[in-house]
């Protein structure tokens, strides 16, 4: 913090000012002229929180993608497929056991296992050949998408999350003050806030795992220098499988979380593949922090685009990507 302040004083002031402006926008009661300018406060705050939760969901998906790339230089274009597979498996288990959390865990484990098998039987055979690995992930995603369509058909599925996660909470944010002087508070679905909290927990857990455990140390060492790591007696293949399992498992977990927030249907795999691609291109490939920043930017951009420029929403996401590529081709946190 201190170092950042000393190094980039202008940026620090700019960020502080922006944060202050945002806090004012969220917590104050909007004057008339502002409402005339950008519409009702309710829309704005809702869009903001929607963007944050969507960013959280995108982080869950993209962190696995970036983790796998960081260590193995493997661009896993079947990542969206793993998201969808996790959603379907989670749905089946949750329906069968009547327990949403069991579905969540089952999706994590099952998709993690499938990732492990892919690493063991496919990617290990073509190490260091990234183009072929990528082509193989494309082939796998074509086949898997088709098989999933065969099993679960084109129907849209809807999770039933536990009772206490349903419903909405009243936020301590005043939306308008009625003529009677009574303040109206904003309401927001509890589940979506839970998504945001969950993604934060996952982010922190991932950070602790990478920075505070022995396995995490090996992974970080592997990111820096794979050969040296294996030369120092670590079974690199085992580390690879672990990372692939965690990365794929996160996609599966995100499938259940995202499937509950929205719904599960064929085609969602492509949506989340695009999200992970753009998030890691913007945030920087291979960096977890980058994935968090990218996910936040893209989630917010998408929701604000949807709310304020309905038919050009995608263009905003696209422009952000182009801008980042033009200024910093390696992404915001990329090396």
């Amino acid at each position: 913090m201190q170092r950042f302040l000393n190094k980039h004083p202008t940026w620090a002031v700019f960020i502080l000012l922006a944060a202050a402006l945002l806090a004012w926008l969220v917590f104050s009661v909007w004057p008339e002229w502002l409402i005339d300018l950008i519409g009702r406060k309710k829309t704005f705050v809702h869009t903001l929180i929607n963007g944050l939760t969507l960013g959280g969901l995108y982080f869950l998906v993209a962190s696995g993608f970036t983790l796998i790339f960081g260590l193995m230089r493997n661009v896993n274009l079947a990542h969206g497929t793993m998201y969808l597979l996790g959603a379907y498996i989670g749905y089946e288990v949750a329906e069968f056991s009547n327990n949403w959390f069991l579905g969540l865990i089952a999706a994590f484990i099952a998709v993690g296992l499938s990732g492990m098998l892919m690493q063991l039987f496919v990617f290990r055979r073509m190490e260091g050949d990234d183009l072929r690995q990528t082509l193989v992930t494309i082939a796998i995603s074509i086949i898997a998408a088709d098989l999933m369509l065969a099993i679960w058909t084109g129907t849209t599925y809807q999770f039933t999350p536990p009772e206490w996660l349903f419903g909405s909470v009243t936020l301590p944010i005043v939306s308008v003050i009625k003529s009677s002087g009574e303040a109206v508070y904003l309401k927001y679905p509890l589940y979506r806030l839970a998504v945001l909290v969950l993604s934060m927990i996952v982010g922190i857990a991932l950070w602790l795992f990478l920075n505070r455990t022995r396995a995490g140390m090996m992974i970080r060492a592997g990111v820096n220098d794979r050969e040296m790591l294996s030369a120092s007696g670590v079974n690199v293949q085992l580390v690879f499988m672990l990372v692939f399992a965690v990365g794929a498992g996160l996609a599966g977990l995100a499938g259940v979380v995202g499937g509950t927030a929205l719904s599960i249907a064929p085609g969602e795999d492509i949506r989340y593949l695009l999200a992970s691609l753009v998030v890691v291109i913007v945030g920087g490939l291979g960096s977890i922090t980058g994935a968090a920043i990218g996910a936040l930017i893209i989630g917010l951009a998408e929701q604000f685009g949807l709310a304020y420029f309905p038919t050009y929403g995608v263009v905003i996401t696209f422009l952000i990507m182009v801008m980042v590529l033009a200024i910093r081709p390696q992404g915001i946190m990329g090396k």
Binding site: L77, L274, L277, F318
Partner: peptide, 18 residues
């Protein structure tokens, strides 16, 4: 073009999907 190799696939795929 400023990025190379595997990045090209990712960027062009992102453009195509977008």
């Amino acid at each position: 073009v400023r990025t190379e190799g595997i990045y090209t696939i990712m960027i062009t795929l992102a453009i195509a999907v977008a």
